[in-house]
């Protein structure tokens, strides 16, 4: 219990540090920086919600979500000539199929989730490069998707999608049989099997949802930049898992909520904005990601050892 108290103290300290940094950084509480923070939080957050389904299912994380995000962004732009909704549907379906297949393999033959997703990452890279010849994807000249780029007051389209997505994810976790089974499978796979939960199905659905949310992030990012290549999602796996862990979701699986992801994503994005405002490079943000993941994992696993 004292360990838990120490963890809480460290958490409070880090949060105080963050708030202090916000207060002393000129311009952090200005509209542009808040908008930028929330915008950044939205894209990370969408991938992080997807990641959270995988983490809760007990499969730690996926290393293929960045590549999936990029692939879905490219697919959205390449099919944008067929109309916005059609393009969205195709990109989402691609995300669900790509990630859901990995979930099926992991769920049915109990393959190591990290290795499967590393293989999927390499496969996606290879296939997409072969298909596009390495060229960037651009939208169809006649494509119309300004809805995805609208902004009402402080709320930009990705933020609206993120909020709606988080609410939907929480509803799925709380009110569906799949959601309840997900917690059981994640907290004790053998016990879930013995209780008659169809574990491969639960795992597969978790990955399908991960693919869905990642594709949403890819679509929103592609619509923003009006172009996409395989680098579109670079780093998002790590940033998403950082957001999941900062939110306090256990890396061992079996617990967590969408709210925690929202909190984690916002804290992570705020820290990133602070670095930018204080004049640090984007490499520093990578460093921050690494440090944060290290800290949280050490704290969590240390706490688990009674």
């Amino acid at each position: 219990m004292t360990r838990q108290r120490a963890i809480n103290a460290i958490r409070a300290l880090l949060l105080a540090l963050l708030v202090a940094a916000m207060a002393t950084t000129p311009g952090f509480f200005s509209a542009p920086s808040i908008i930028a923070t929330l915008d950044y939080a939205s894209l990370i957050g969408l991938v992080a919600i997807g990641m959270a389904f995988i983490t809760i299912s007990g499969n730690i994380m996926s290393l293929a979500l960045s590549a999936t995000m990029a692939t879905c962004g490219e697919i959205f732009l390449l099919t944008s000539g067929m109309g916005m909704w059609t393009a969205i549907a195709i990109a989402l379906a691609a995300g669900v199929v790509i990630t859901g297949l990995q979930g099926f393999i992991i769920g049915v033959i109990r393959a190591n989730p990290i290795i499967v997703t590393i293989a999927a990452f390499a496969l996606l890279h290879g296939i997409v490069s072969a298909f596009t010849g390495g060229a960037r994807a651009y939208p169809d000249p006649g494509a119309e998707y300004s809805l995805l780029r609208t902004r009402i007051g402080m709320v930009q389209a990705p933020l609206a999608v993120f909020i709606a997505g988080a609410i939907a994810a929480q509803l799925v976790l709380t009110f569906t049989r799949f959601g309840r089974n997900l917690f059981l499978v994640g907290s004790n796979f053998r016990a879930a099997e013995a209780a008659g939960v169809v574990t491969w199905r639960t795992t597969s659905i978790a990955y399908c949802l991960a693919g869905f949310y990642t594709a949403l992030a890819g679509i929103m990012a592609a619509a923003r930049y009006q172009t996409a290549d395989l680098e579109l999602g670079a780093g998002y796996d790590y940033e998403a898992i950082a957001a999941v862990l900062i939110g306090g979701i256990a890396i061992q699986g079996g617990m967590g909520s969408a709210w925690r992801v929202v909190i984690g994503a916002v804290i992570f994005a705020a820290a990133g904005t602070l670095l930018v405002l204080r004049g640090y490079s984007t490499e520093m943000q990578r460093l921050l990601t690494g440090v944060l993941i290290f800290c949280v994992v050490c704290l969590q696993t240390g706490g688990a050892k009674r």
Binding site: R180, L184, S187, R190, A191, A194, M255
Partner: peptide, 21 residues
């Protein structure tokens, strides 16, 4: 511990684990 129960989850969830249907 290993197969019978979900020790980290609530008693209520453990009771209904096989019967969400």
């Amino acid at each position: 511990g290993a197969e019978g129960l979900f020790l980290k989850r609530e008693v209520r969830e453990n009771l209904v684990a096989s019967r969400y249907g």
